[in-house]
């Protein structure tokens, strides 16, 4: 009896290991996509691509919520022999980092024709499409209409003393926002913004999702987050309001998605087809109608009523290609020290 148990256990172990080892890592007619866009938005697009082309998408999604080391690290470590064909980045900064480390390959998609050039890499390493924006989210139960914020500088105002929050500016889109503020406001003013934020009792939280959760729950009155995060709270009928900040000032930071072809990708043709699909007007429309509520960067794409058109807001004037360098400098310097000092 014991022999049987041992034999069955051994056979199971061997079989499971064999099943794990022998699977084909890369079957034909499929494309491997790493994505820092939240899975809930990325998977339907991948499915749509499969429906239209018959090419299977093996999606590896990422999220800043897990507080884990992310896919960008994986792409860097895989540089010698990549597994991914495409990196679908939620922002252009990660795409620019890949470019700076020779992990991306230039690709000019025929679908990029209608896309504004300011949202794409001049050398074609990444192409921007559907965008989110960095917005102010506030709790309507805690902030009366008369005190509604209009600018990111309102986070420094005494009426929000001790009740404003900001995601960790070393990670995610908040890091890009921080770099953009340094680019637009200049070193001195940007540093002052961060310093005064703390002086005003501001709190650093872990992510934009956390900003949304805690403002919606009334733990904070106001915070800065992304439009897709805000839209989730809105759909859940949370008592939240949105402000596209600095309409009359520095403008609102627009964060386009970026499609990147990986250098040395195992299936570059499949990758290019997927990028073509991402950059198509249909994908921009689909993302606008999804819960992500993303703004098409092309003009003339039909959008639902709850999605702002880019023409309705004042986009912050930033050089996206240079944000990665700015961010690297800040992450090694001011921002790192600021976060370390002010995280409890």
């Amino acid at each position: 009896m014991r022999m049987k148990v041992v034999s069955v256990t051994a056979a199971t172990i061997v079989a499971t290991c064999a099943a794990g080892c022998l699977e084909s890592p890369e079957a034909p007619h499929e494309v491997v996509v790493y994505s820092s866009v939240d899975e809930i938005f990325a998977r339907p697009i991948a499915q749509q691509f499969k429906n239209e082309t018959g090419i299977q998408v093996r999606l590896v999604p990422d999220t800043e919520e897990t507080k884990s080391t992310g896919l960008l690290n994986r792409l860097m470590a895989e540089k010698a022999r990549p597994q991914a064909d495409v990196f679908w980045s939620g922002d252009p900064v990660r795409a620019a980092i890949l470019k700076s480390r020779d992990i991306s390959e230039p690709y000019r998609s025929p679908q990029a024709d209608g896309l504004p050039v300011r949202y794409s890499d001049p050398q074609g390493h990444w192409a921007g499409f559907s965008a989110r924006a960095r917005v102010l989210i506030y709790n309507t139960s805690l902030v009366p209409e008369t005190e509604r914020p209009t600018s990111v500088m309102d986070l420094l105002d005494s009426r929000f003393r001790g009740s404003a929050c900001l995601a960790n500016p070393l990670f995610g889109t908040t890091s890009m926002h921080a770099a953009a503020l340094f680019q637009v406001l200049g070193e001195v003013n940007a540093r002052e913004f961060f310093t005064r934020f703390i002086e005003n009792g501001g709190t650093i939280v872990s992510s934009n999702g956390e900003v949304r959760r805690r403002v919606a729950a009334g733990d904070f009155a106001i915070g800065i987050t992304d439009t897709d995060d805000f839209n989730v709270a809105l759909r859940e009928r949370k008592p939240v309001g949105i402000v596209y900040p600095d309409h009359d000032g520095i403008g609102t930071l627009v964060i386009p998605n970026a499609a990147v072809l990986i250098a040395g990708a195992p299936n570059p043709e499949g990758g290019k087809r997927f990028i073509d699909f991402l950059l198509s007007p249909e994908t921009e429309e689909a993302l606008a109608h999804s819960a992500a509520a993303q703004m098409p960067v092309r003009s003339g794409i039909p959008i639902p009523a709850y999605v702002r058109s880019l023409t309705e807001i004042t986009p912050m004037q930033v050089d996206y290609d240079k944000l990665a360098d700015e961010l690297e400098r800040l992450s090694n310097g001011f921002l790192r020290e600021w976060v370390t000092r002010h995280s409890r």
């Binding site: 939240d38 899975e39 590896v60 999604p61 999220t63 992510s207 995060d229 989730v232 819960a291």
Partner: peptide, 18 residues
Amino acid sequence: PPGQDSLSIALFTVMANA
């Protein structure tokens, strides 16, 4: 391996915006 995620990964990658 691409496409072979676990339940915990699936759970946490939808967390941000679900």
